[in-house]
Nucleic acid binder design. Sequence first.
DNA 1: GTTTTGAGTTACTAAAAGTAACCTAGTATT
DNA 2: AATACTAGGTTACTTTTAGTAACTCAAAAC
Lengths: 139, 139
Amino acid sequence: MEVTKVENQHVKVQEKINDVFDSSHSLSACCPIKDILGRFGDKWSIYAILMLGREEKLRFNELKSMIDGISQRMLTVTLRSLEEDGLVSRKIYPEIPPKVEYRLTELGQGLLLQLLQLADWAKLNLHEILEARKSFAER
Amino acid sequence: MEVTKVENQHVKVQEKINDVFDSSHSLSACCPIKDILGRFGDKWSIYAILMLGREEKLRFNELKSMIDGISQRMLTVTLRSLEEDGLVSRKIYPEIPPKVEYRLTELGQGLLLQLLQLADWAKLNLHEILEARKSFAER
DNA sequence: GTTTTGAGTTACTAAAAGTAACCTAGTATT
DNA sequence: AATACTAGGTTACTTTTAGTAACTCAAAAC
């Protein structure tokens, strides 16, 4: 009974994995996970998304001071690429000194929810991973 | 009524975001998402995890031929880092020519499930993202 | 005695990430 | 009237990381 259950689950997983590759012919080219991960696999995007998830609208220098250690250039680059993918919107007020407001789009909020799920798993398993790292280092 | 529901949801999201930072003092250092993402945010780890999710045990060159375009070195590096974190196990048969079997650990299977969830979201929203990219490029 | 095989290393190069210094143009301070 | 400050960048440069090509090892097969 238990075994059957586990086997069924495994079959489901395999189907899903096949699905991942279905949509693209070439593996290395562009299965959707890769495409999405490209968006927050870098060093800063996650922080920007999380901060914008907290405050719902933020100006450039507010973000800069919330994201410890980020440079102006990297914040610009990060926000541009998030904007490019429709995850963040950018509203310019034609004033001097300039004023620009950033916020998550609905799409961005959806991604945020996914990230938070991942964070849940991460928190649950971080200890085990750290243990594994330690025992690996000892060899 | 609807508004209240949305607001409640937003509050929950904010709590979760705060949780993400709880566990680490410094933002840029090591909140758990970053730590986990570090593991599959690179170019090849996902492919290795997906392939091992399909077949449950694979040898080095089997993996190499399944992951289109990966070099020996990058496969070695990728597998080592996955092993280091306890996501993949490595069984060496002391034969010549050498034989090494890789498989996902339970932890690795857990991560795979998370990845597949992310893939679901990615597939649902890929179209919208591609649209956004296109209209961004037009400016 | 040269070739093949599996699982890697070593030494190098190309690409990406990141930094420091500069720009704009208006306002407030001395 | 000269200086400094503000917000939101850009340009030119350096460091770090990802990636490639060629080599290794030790036995076995041709």
